[in-house]
Computed example of a mutant assay.
Amino acid sequence: MTTMSIGKAWEEAVAFVAREASLLFPVALLFVALPGLILQEMTPPELAAWFADPKADTIPAMPPGFAVAMLLTIILIWFGSLALFALALRPGISVGEALRLSFARLPVLIGTALVIAGALVVAVTMAILLGVVLSLASKPLGATMGLLLGFGGAILVFFASVRFVLLNPVVIDGRTGVVESLRAAWQLTRGHFWRLLGFLFLVMILSAIASAAAQAVVGVLGGLVAGPEGARLAGSIAGALVSTVIQVYMLVMLARLYRQAVAA
């Protein structure tokens, strides 16, 4: 099996982004950064506080309008991500063509998400039923098994998220349906789990540090000009912009890794 080269993917991504920045960044800003920023501004304070420090016993009520806005934001970001992958995988394609292709393949991506979510719901339901049955026999046994099942479920979700990391390029680059796309994405990452995990971990750390630094610096400047509210808004915008830049490079790198996996 050919080993994925993160270094080669990085070199190709840097060259591609430098060449096609005028196509990539407007799409990323309009369909990835802007929807996320708008949703962030719409988030009720108590819900934002819970997202920062989630506790199972103090889940705040989610306004119906916010739930709809969150769903639309997710779909818009998926749409933008597919368009970015189309631009990265098909050199010479126009932005209009990439957006049309993304719109055509978006139902498949939504279908894969529903299948994965359905599988998780079934697994969680079975785990809860097993925990209830064991609790009827022995409460300590049921509690222990509940902790083990919860830990195992978290590991399973984490593992699946890495194995399906090439799902978006599979969907946008092919003509297959939901099940075939899931199968292809799973096959392409076989034997590359740890390499992909390391790559995603580095991107996550880099994005968190860079976004936090930009948010802090620009937030201070915004506070000097427009007070606390200006500091918060300026910091949020700066953090979103930096995060979007890093995400563009990550998506282009994933496109190059996808090409390596297909060639192998």
Rank of each mutant, 00 (worst) to 15 (best):
A15T: 10
A123G: 08
F31E: 02
L221A: 15
F85L: 14
L200Q: 15
W194D: 03
V68I: 15
I155Q: 08
A261T: 07
G152D: 13
A123H: 12
L76P: 00
G222T: 10
F51Q: 00
T2R: 14
W10V: 11
R195F: 01
P35G: 12
A52F: 06
L120C: 07
G96A: 06
M4I: 15
E11W: 08
V124L: 12
Q215N: 11
L206G: 15
V124A: 14
A238N: 09
A67M: 13
M145L: 13
V218R: 04
L24E: 05
A216I: 09
L254R: 10
G92P: 00
L114N: 03
L24V: 10
T43K: 08
A48V: 03
L147R: 09
L76E: 01
A261G: 05
F31H: 05
I205H: 05
G223L: 10
N168S: 12
G219Q: 13
A127S: 12
A127C: 07
E229Q: 14
L72I: 13
T176H: 14
V165Q: 14
I59N: 00
G153I: 03
W78H: 04
I116S: 09
A234F: 15
E180Y: 04
A67Q: 13
G80E: 04
I93P: 00
I116N: 09
L101F: 05
W10P: 00
P26E: 03
P63V: 06
R100Y: 13
L202E: 02
T73Q: 07
L167C: 12
L254K: 11
V124E: 05
P63K: 04
A61N: 06
A98P: 01
S161A: 14
K8L: 14
A69I: 05
V17D: 09
F151R: 01
S243F: 01
G142W: 04
L148D: 06
E12Y: 02
Y258I: 09
G235T: 14
G239F: 11
F164G: 08
L148Q: 08
R105A: 00
V242P: 03
G142L: 02
L47T: 05
V170S: 07
G174C: 08
L188Y: 06
V32N: 07
S81E: 10
A216K: 13
T2A: 13
F158A: 15
A86K: 11
V217M: 09
E97N: 06
F51K: 01
A69R: 03
M4D: 03
G92S: 11
A208P: 05
L202D: 05
T58E: 06
F164N: 05
A154K: 02
I237M: 07
L47N: 02
F79R: 00
A49W: 12
S161Y: 07
A21E: 07
A21Y: 15
W50G: 00
D53Y: 08
L87E: 02
I155V: 15
L182C: 04
A9Q: 00
P44R: 12
A113I: 00
L71C: 10
R175K: 14
L37I: 06
V115I: 13
A119N: 06
L109V: 03
R175M: 09
A21Q: 14
R90G: 02
Q260T: 11
P107E: 05
A226D: 08
